[in-house]
Design a binder for these strands. Structure first.
Length: 884
RNA sequence: GGGCGCGUAGCUCAGCGGGAGAGCACUACGUUGACAUCGUAGGGGUCGCUGGUUCAAUCCCAGCCGCGCCCACCA
């Protein structure tokens, strides 16, 4: 017997372990079946499960479980990402707490520490995913720094280098002075900051008291100025072009150049040029062959290229000093408050510097072309489609990708330098030595490039590196390309685009057919969840409180395409109640002896009630399947919720009570028991991808003996022949009639004693039983002395209209608030009068009659008739109300 | 500046050419009946505004207003 309540915690861990032990998650179990592959977006190894992961992985698990039940050979490839900067920071901070500094430790020892940390704490998120119910093939778990994946990374790097698609270049990069590394454009986040705009006067050479004014938000960079630019068409400055001015504080002669970059509308129209510290100025500098003076060191302190007074100052201290010194010399024309956007490093949290260094770049523009084409051709498709445009937008304007990082944790770049700076890029040090020997004709001392690769470089290979590439493994052959990538839009550029590029270049095939982009999960107010705001919802706490199934169902039901999810606990509680409802529905069937019959044939049932539920369930199967096919998770969840609660529980289970509990027709009862058990079983199948735990538990307790585990049971077929229209129509009548009766009684404020659940009579033998079932109530109500009998006209009309063949009387008794009833009826009558007038006008409209489809016209006619009937009923009821 | 999206019930959101919907919240009644709750009923909406297309617009188109996000922008 089922417990009175469902206890998620115990059930969840038990079934997860059983599935694992049975190898239910493993790929390759069905040799002949078509493969279905999803690679997990690898969470950072430092990560712990946040609500976004919960959504992302729930959706993947829904797809995976569903396809598995459909008989596909599914592979959900799990793993974690080494997350270069993030992990290095975590371990570094931990060591600092122990009083150890990274640089004191040295590179090798530090990297060992990181590995130690990974072995100890790196599995957290994996365990958390398991609590969510994720049915990944854990036996195939990978880590981006695994030996195999590292080989793939090296091979890709070497191949791209030899193809000229990776190169080394000296140019401005975004430099994070806190982490002391280059970062890519994507890792820069713009923040709006209130700052100042300083107008500085630079003396013009050879013209006493003549100045050219430049505006800047970054006074400290003036120390690296090497020119002043004005627009070629700006007549204010025409005569100055070609002359020089003198850089205050430094004394350098700066040429005044004409360049389109200078915007006459902005500032003073003249702009100082600092090629080593500004991307635009860098370009100007290249155009005019200007000197590039770098005044900062890697930590953002002023270096030896700055005048002595400023050396060693932090860039912000230097700013204050420069302004003060300029003021002292009377060279500050004015200062304005200025709202502007400042680039910050997304990890370091400090403003990044455009910084002149040697870095490694990927020629993304070349690699992007096939990736654009693949989407153009529809070989890879975005769902929802609107993201296609975002993808194109970025791909078409793609910039060289800076892939080197001045970190210790990551894939070290397989490049070695000879004594003269010659570069040897090879898979191994031995190969590099060999190449050097060939090059120099003798043994040469080589030093390896100390930099590591951007974490996203290895992530870009994930769909095939995890399968064993560059080895020619059976897995690569079988599971690549993958079917769908499930992710959120914030990593389309970081990850999706780059997987497309690498996949197409090296595998000659797209990495996935579909990219499903889901929403972001926000808090109730629509704000991003963040630790600093204190509005994070911890999925593990939610699982503890509501159960994994409730959390999963909530996320799935709210995963509408194209809108962010504002998660509230109220919603979660609602779906927890749904789990409870399902549990109790199962209890009801059990208590009524509904045991699965292996010989049950849904096509052979005879009772209307049973034919109806078989059909309704079949329709739901089709609906859910179709919605999942289209990645409409919310609709699929809604369809199944509706059916379970509002069809199966509210009506079917209510209807079967009299059949099963009143004796009577034994054959009908037996059929009904078998049907109920069968229907519940199907329902559990449908719900399993969404709520794996409670459904598996119920299946184990109530399913057929030897039926095995639900996780590997077959997904129901929607056999259209099972949809019985006659039964559906008949039951629709019944449902409608009962609702109408309920509405009447509800409106009358009939006291409890006079309101049994439902009672009516119809020419259906098993439903007639129901009257008997409720007889006690009716009798009791009739005998109550405190009640006055009221017969409402509506009820009479309903009885005659809805059940032409049956006698149908409802002994409604009770008290009535006549004034309230009069008000209500008046309102209804008024509404209907308006409705009728509108429909009449429509039906008199020649254009409408001429152009609208016939069935629409017919429909409007029917509505006119219905409205008139209702109007008559209500008007009569109104007239018959006793005066007060 | 370029791009994308969103304004529908008190709240959170579906729907998207012919009858305005769900969940939560609210009100009333009921509940020793499978229901740590559940049932039944009810109130509540100029579907952001203005035009256009159409026989017909919450839905399609344009403009406007409000909100959000992404990209670019450190004079």
């Amino acid at each position: 017997m089922l417990d009175k309540t469902y206890r998620p915690t115990e059930v969840e861990s038990r079934h997860y372990a059983r599935w694992q032990d049975a190898g239910a998650f493993a790929c390759g179990r069905r040799a002949g079946a078509a493969p279905y592959t999803i690679v997990i977006p690898p969470p950072n190894v430092t990560g712990s499960l946040h609500i976004g992961h919960a959504l992302n992985n729930t959706l993947q698990d829904v797809l995976i479980r569903w396809r598995r039940m459909q008989g596909r050979d599914v592979l959900w490839q799990p793993g974690t990402d080494h997350a270069g900067i993030a992990t290095q920071m975590v371990v570094e901070r931990q060591l600092e707490n122990e009083g150890v500094r990274r640089r004191d430790l040295g590179r090798e020892a530090f990297v060992d520490k990181v590995w130690e940390w990974k072995e100890r704490s790196g599995g957290t998120i994996t365990l958390q995913l398991q609590r969510l119910g994720a049915s990944c093939d854990w036996s195939r778990e990978r880590f981006t720094m695994d030996e195999g994946l590292s080989v793939a990374v090296r091979k890709i790097f070497v191949d791209l280098y030899k193809q000229g698609l990776i190169y080394r270049d000296k140019r401005l990069v975004n430099w994070d002075p806190k982490l002391e590394t280059a970062i890519s454009d994507l890792e820069v986040q713009s923040r709006e900051v209130k700052g100042k705009l300083w107008y500085f006067k630079y003396p013009v050479e050879g013209a006493a008291d003549r100045f050219i004014t430049v505006a800047t938000t970054r006074p400290e960079t003036m120390l690296g100025d090497t020119a002043v630019a004005v627009h070629p068409d700006d007549r204010r400055y025409t005569e100055l072009v070609g002359r020089h001015c003198i850089l205050p504080l430094v004394g350098r002669r700066l040429p005044i150049v004409a360049d389109e970059h200078a915007d006459p509308e902005q500032g003073s129209g003249a702009v100082k040029i600092t090629p080593a510290h500004d991307f635009n100025d860098f370009d100007v500098g290249r155009r005019h062959g200007l000197e590039m003076v770098n005044v900062l060191d890697p930590r953002g302190y002023l270096n030896e290229n700055a005048p002595e007074a400023y050396r060693g100052l932090d860039r912000f201290e230097a700013r204050d000093r420069v302004v003060a010194d300029m003021e002292a010399q009377g060279l500050v024309e004015r200062v304005e408050e200025h709202l502007h956007v400042v680039p910050y490093g997304d990890r370091g949290g400090v403003p990044v510097e455009p910084y002149l260094t040697d870095q490694w770049y990927v020629d993304a523009k070349t690699l992007a072309q096939p990736a654009i084409k693949a989407v153009d051709d529809g070989r890879t498709r975005f769902v929802p489609a609107q993201w296609t445009k975002t993808y194109y937008e970025w791909m078409r304007n793609i910039q060289p990708w800076c892939i080197s990082r001045q970190l210790w944790w990551g894939h070290q770049i397989p490049a070695w330098y000879g004594p003269d700076g010659e570069i040897f890029v090879e898979l191994t040090e031995a190969d590099a030595k060999e190449a050097a020997r060939t090059h120099y004709g003798t043994e040469a001392e080589l030093t390896r490039d100390p930099d590591v690769l951007d974490t996203w470089f290895s992530s870009a290979l994930w769909p095939f590196s995890t399968l064993g590439w560059p080895e020619e493994t059976p897995e690569v052959a079988r599971y690549y390309p993958t079917d769908v990538l499930v992710t959120s839009f914030d990593i389309i550029f970081f990850w999706v685009a780059r997987m497309m590029m690498m996949g197409l270049h090296f595998m000659r095939e797209i990495p996935f057919h579909t990219v499903y982009i889901h929403a972001l999960v926000r808090d109730v107010k629509g704000q991003k969840m963040s630790k600093s705001k204190g509005n994070v919802m911890d999925p593990l706490e939610l699982i503890d409180k509501y159960g994994a199934d409730a959390l999963r169902f909530t996320l799935t039901a709210m995963a509408t395409q194209g809108r962010d999810i504002k998660l509230s606990e109220g919603r979660l509680a609602g779906y927890r109640n749904f789990v409870t409802k399902l549990w109790n529905a199962a209890r009801l069937t059990q208590m009524n002896g509904c045991v699965p019959d292996p010989a049950f044939d849904p096509a052979a049932v005879g009772e209307t009630l049973n034919r109806w539920i078989v059909g309704a369930l079949t329709a739901t199967v089709a609906e859910v399947t179709d919605y999942l096919d289209e990645y409409k998770f919310d609709q699929a969840a809604a369809a199944i919720y509706r059916f379970t609660w509002h069809t199966f529980c509210d009506w079917y289970l209510e209807f079967i009570k009299p059949v099963l509990q009143q004796g009577g027709d034994a054959a009908a009862a037996a059929e009904t028991r078998a049907t109920a058990a069968w229907a519940l079983g199907r329902l559990l199948h449908l719900l399993h991808p969404f709520m794996p735990f409670v459904t598996e538990e119920l299946w184990q307790q109530l399913g057929p003996k030897d039926a095995g585990m639900l996780i590997t049971a077959p997904w129901p077929e929607a056999d259209a022949a099972l949809i019985d229209r006659d039964a559906a129509a008949e039951m629709d009548w019944v449902v409608q009639a009962v609702s109408e009766v309920r509405a009447v009684r509800g409106d009358l404020n009939v006291p409890a004693s006079a309101r049994p659940n439902l009672y009516y009579k119809i020419e259906e033998p098993h439903l007639e039983n129901w009257i008997n079932y409720n007889k006690d109530f009716i009798t009791r109500a009739s005998n109550s002395a405190s009640l006055i009998p009221i017969h409402t006209p509506i009820t009479e009309v309903s009885a005659n209209a809805v059940f032409p063949g049956g006698t149908f009387t409802i002994p409604l008794q009770g008290v009535i608030d006549v004034d309230a009833e009069r008000q209500r009826l008046s309102r209804e009558v008024e509404k209907l009068t308006g409705e009728i007038a509108r429909l009449d006008a429509k039906l008199a409209n020649e254009n409408f009659l001429a152009k609208a489809p016939a069935e629409v016209v017919e429909e409007q006619h029917e509505r006119r008739t219905d409205a008139a009937t209702a109007h008559a009923k209500l008007a009569a009821a109104l007239a018959r109300l006793p005066a007060t």
